[in-house]
């Protein structure tokens, strides 16, 4: 495959995984947890690097999951101590992120790991770092990791589809019919962390938030079913990634920045033109509601 094809494939995988995860971030009203986790996984990655002294996908994923879970747990814990939910999120993630930044500067300074890179990602370098896999041959390391993560995310979304749905819609009912709501919450936060870590190299901590939230928020405007929303959201993710790359190539600018910008465009189009929730639809056609005639 060509250099460009690898980049587009990698970006598309980011769009797919983030699109799927994003749907439940939106439905569970925890979109900003993505922001928090996308920053704190940095700490996990740095600590994994300090312990193992190598920039390896596997250790980074483990470090990222642990950091993500720690974030979710600390946010819950602070919240239970009467700190407001958004405030506890702000406290936890900035603190953990700051520790990560300090550690990079002091202990990991001369490694292939710097703050700029962590925040913005660098998808242009991805095709140069390859690993050999049986059957597939030489493929970029980050792409392989994203492929695996996409399959893992897809598996968990499908396997626990009804559990995700019920715990998002009505956690009290879910608990009363015997579904472990808290366990599902932490499992979900682990998936968010895994997706974030895998997308880290490609788009960085800031842009991954755009990929997680915006395609899903756009899909929400087009659909009245969770299943349709999942399909649309991953589609929007892929479209944003590809369009973003093309924009970047065209005007020669930051790839991750262009991708995030493209997600914004998708949202703007959805917001204006969605037939059900769109801004124009509201004016063209008054909202129809079918109440029982009483």
């Amino acid at each position: 495959m060509t250099y460009t094809a690898w980049i587009i494939l990698t970006a598309a995988l980011v769009g797919l995984s983030c699109g799927l995860i994003g749907v439940f971030l939106i439905l569970r009203k925890t979109a900003m947890m993505a922001d928090a986790i996308s920053h704190t996984v940095l700490l996990g990655i740095v600590i994994a690097f300090i312990i193992t002294r190598e920039v390896s996908g596997m250790y980074m994923v483990i470090g990222g999951i642990l950091a993500g879970l720690l974030t979710a747990y600390l946010v819950q814990w602070l919240h239970s101590l009467e700190v407001q939910h958004d405030a506890s999120m702000g406290i936890v993630f900035t603190t953990l992120f700051a520790i990560g930044v300090i550690l990079i500067a002091t202990s990991a300074g001369n490694a292939h790991l710097d703050v700029q890179h962590a925040l913005m990602g660098e998808i242009t370098f991805i095709p140069f770092q390859t690993i050999s896999l049986p059957l597939l041959g030489d493929i970029p390391q980050a792409t392989a990791m994203l492929g695996i993560v996409f399959l893992v995310v897809l598996f968990f979304i499908i396997a626990f589809y009804k559990e995700w749905k019920i715990t998002s819609f009505d956690p009290a009912l879910a608990a009363s019919v015997g579904i472990p709501v808290l366990l599902m919450h932490y499992l979900f936060m682990s998936l968010v962390s895994v997706t974030t870590v895998a997308s880290f190299d490609a788009v960085g901590a800031i842009m991954v938030v755009a990929m997680l939230i915006t395609p899903a928020a756009s899909a929400y405007l087009w659909s009245d079913r969770v299943s349709v929303m999942l399909v649309l959201s991953s589609l929007f993710g892929v479209v944003s990634a590809v369009v973003g790359y093309l924009i970047a190539a065209w005007i020669d600018t930051s790839i991750s920045g262009s991708m995030a910008f493209a997600t914004g465009l998708v949202f703007l189009i959805s917001f204006l033109f969605s037939p059900t929730h769109g801004w124009i639809a509201k004016y063209v056609r008054p909202k129809q509601r079918g109440y029982v005639k009483e």
Partner: peptide, 14 residues
């Protein structure tokens, strides 16, 4: 929430 009345009722059986 993007779901139907029938779906919500089915949740009782989850």
């Amino acid at each position: 929430f993007p779901t139907t009345a029938l779906d919500v009722v089915t949740m009782g059986l989850y």
